[in-house]
Nucleic acid binder design. Sequence first.
DNA 1: AATGCATGGTGTAATTGGTACACAATTGTA
DNA 2: TACAATTGTGTACCAATTACACCATGCATT
Lengths: 253, 253
Amino acid sequence: MLTKQELEEFWAEASEIYLNHISIDCVVFGFHEGQMKVLMLKSNNEEAWYLPGGFVLKKEPIEKAADRILKIRTGIDKIFLQQFRVFGDPDRSKIHNDMYKDMLPKEQNFFDQRFISIGYYALVDFFNVTPAPDDFSELCTWRDLNDLPKFQLDHRLIFETALDTLRLQLNYQPIGYNLMPKEFTMPELQKLYETILDKKLDRRNFQRRMLGFGILNKLEQTRKGGAHKAPYLYSFDLENYQAALKEGLKSGW
Amino acid sequence: MLTKQELEEFWAEASEIYLNHISIDCVVFGFHEGQMKVLMLKSNNEEAWYLPGGFVLKKEPIEKAADRILKIRTGIDKIFLQQFRVFGDPDRSKIHNDMYKDMLPKEQNFFDQRFISIGYYALVDFFNVTPAPDDFSELCTWRDLNDLPKFQLDHRLIFETALDTLRLQLNYQPIGYNLMPKEFTMPELQKLYETILDKKLDRRNFQRRMLGFGILNKLEQTRKGGAHKAPYLYSFDLENYQAALKEGLKSGW
DNA sequence: AATGCATGGTGTAATTGGTACACAATTGTA
DNA sequence: TACAATTGTGTACCAATTACACCATGCATT
């Protein structure tokens, strides 16, 4: 827990460098061992978890702000980021306001204001992330989508909106380059789709459809080690992948 | 043009009642005589057009703010509104800042700050709208999508992003209830889709697909008066329409 | 009134795409 | 060596989309 002095300094600096009323919250998705994960932070002193977030510097583009915030929390530089909604209910930060209400006079208290939060979701390579807590958390770690904790503020809504958006985007955008390792097998990629959509897909039809998009390179090697037939390895064809990102895919799932 | 005194009053009040740094811009689409229209305002004194917009009251939900702003500009109450992106480049309001720079001291000047704008697009019934200029415009009127004026600030970007979003939404959402009159013919509805997508669609396939969605009621009457066969009239089945809005349609065009 | 023309309503064949399977091939293990 | 589990590939079937044909209607022209 920060001392009152440290809070004072934080707030004094915050008012100086950040835009008032505007915050950014990020839903960072990762994929590990066939499970979808979200990066979350656990509050000091209480069993409430929240999403990585931050504020916008006075002369900073908001995309840069989201990049900067995630760089700090994950260590990763160029992240696939997508703005998906603004959360602007006047009461959304009420709990937060109240929490810090009595610690400083109103004028000096950066947190004693209404925040309108811009939601970004990010897709990242699980293994590249080094989670780093912020000043208000004792823990920054991955949480499984099947085992989510209690959310602070409106962060459950933000999370769920992000997931809905991701599912929708699956229909007309290639997804995977940012979530999978460089090389992967078709069953591994399928597992990603199944996890995001939360439903089973037909193995053979998935393969055909995915190959039909023309964004995969089939490699010569196979993944040995399993107690079964060794599957081929694939990598994304980055050029076609980027093109597909722009032009969109055809149909939906 | 406002006098300096009037500006002073506007600014003084604005700082009092609105959140700093946050604005709302709306792309209002209407449909008239087979053409897609956008509601725009023309600046006093110069040939620069901009989108209807405004600010958020200190305790107002942002959706309410968008509603309120559009109510003032169009006279319409319950408008189909969709948030689609935030525009947060630090330089986006530079021209605006400069424009009013020397008219008031910095501290009193609500416009001398960075604005992050939340973009909404709206679909409205052309005939219900009574365009009303604001304090900075001499004109508020519909502009044809095929005959767009010079845009102020980044409003061209905002407009184009809105149009892209609308086209995308056409794939998985029913569109039309808010743009068409109560009763309409199939060719009229098709014209709407063709205008939004900016391409021709097959008359017969369009009809079958549209009917397949199950959101239309076929009426007994036909539209007399044309020099040709009288087409049937349709209306939207509001119940099914709402359901389709929630659950989404199937495939794309 | 007869005819023509432009448009609207409905049907159908061909093609494409998606779904549901079957079967062979490969790998490690019993 | 046989087996279990999994992967690679093919194919028949169904649904949806596309392309096109034909008829009906209402006004205009003569």
